[in-house]
Computed example of a mutant assay.
Amino acid sequence: MKMMIPTKKYGRQAALFGLAAAGFYLLMIYITLAHIEALSGLRPFDMRPGGYSAEQANSLINALGSSGRRYYLTRQIPLDLVYPSLMALTLVSLLKWLGSRDVSQKLVRIGTWLSITAAIADYLENAGICLMILSWPETSANTVLAASVASIVKSGLTTAAVLTVLLSAVFWASKRARTYAR
């Protein structure tokens, strides 16, 4: 006989982490990243899912000026040090909740792995952004390349993690619909 895992805990965790993640995301999008874009006239690194070249990175860092660079490091980066964990915890909690409702454990494991590695890639992106800003105007092409690759990887893994959660939810909803249809 299969033992049922308590699911309320996962649902509450998903809701709490999700609300916190949404709050941080909104702060970043509408305040810090919007301010960075207004200062520089260019899209911030965090808003470039396709990455960026050394020329684009240097243009952004230069356009920010010293106060904009300080703002990026002291306002945006601290928020973006909390957000990746909150996002991963939200997705993992949702997956655990769905997994406790008879969704494939393989799908739960894949989604959990994707969520955690997306957060790690986001932290690597943040480290690269900090290095670029702190070393400017002597930013190395390798640092830019590493940060850009981390941005691309983060975007791809985050998309895959969210799609895995959505796919899991569709499987759960279709199982549930078939059960009620009987």
Rank of each mutant, 00 (worst) to 15 (best):
L60V: 06
V165I: 06
A160W: 14
S155T: 15
E138L: 11
K2S: 04
A127W: 12
A141S: 15
W97Q: 08
L81Q: 09
Y71R: 09
K8F: 12
L166R: 03
G65H: 06
P44S: 04
Q76S: 02
G41C: 05
L131S: 04
A127G: 11
L166F: 05
K175V: 10
K9R: 14
L95E: 04
Y72P: 01
L91R: 03
R70A: 08
H35Q: 12
L42T: 12
K175H: 13
D80G: 07
L73M: 10
D122W: 02
L134M: 13
R12E: 14
K106H: 13
Y180C: 11
L95V: 12
K9L: 15
L86D: 00
L39P: 01
A121L: 10
L16Q: 12
R69K: 09
L89F: 14
Q13M: 14
I5M: 14
E55G: 12
S100V: 12
G65S: 08
E37K: 06
M132H: 01
F24E: 00
L27P: 03
K106Q: 14
T74E: 09
N62W: 14
S140I: 08
H35A: 11
L95F: 07
L107R: 07
I77E: 00
Q56H: 12
Q56L: 13
H35L: 10
A38S: 11
V149P: 00
F17A: 08
T117M: 07
V162G: 01
T117H: 01
L19Q: 03
S40D: 04
R12G: 09
M87R: 15
P137T: 06
L134K: 12
G111N: 04
I133H: 00
S53E: 08
Y83K: 08
T179L: 15
G18Q: 02
M4N: 13
W136K: 02
L64T: 07
R101V: 05
R48V: 08
A119P: 01
M3K: 15
F24L: 08
D46H: 06
A63M: 11
W113F: 06
L107I: 10
A127Y: 14
Y83S: 05
G50A: 10
A150G: 10
S53K: 08
L107K: 05
S155F: 13
L114K: 01
P49L: 06
L64D: 03
S66W: 09
K8S: 05
I120V: 15
V108F: 04
T159K: 02
V108T: 08
L79P: 01
Y123V: 08
C130D: 09
T179Q: 12
E37I: 04
R12P: 05
Y83W: 13
V170F: 09
L131V: 05
A54D: 07
W136Q: 04
G111R: 05
T7H: 08
A22N: 02
A14D: 01
A147V: 03
L27I: 14
T7Q: 10
I5K: 06
V170C: 04
W113E: 03
K9F: 15
P44C: 03
K2M: 05
D122M: 04
G11M: 12
Q13W: 13
T143G: 03
T159H: 03
N58T: 07
T159P: 01
I133G: 00
V144D: 00
A169Q: 10
I120Q: 04
S100M: 09
A141V: 15
L107W: 11
N142H: 14
I110Y: 12
Y83P: 01
Q13R: 08
Q13L: 14
S135Y: 11
M132Y: 06
T164W: 13
L27E: 06
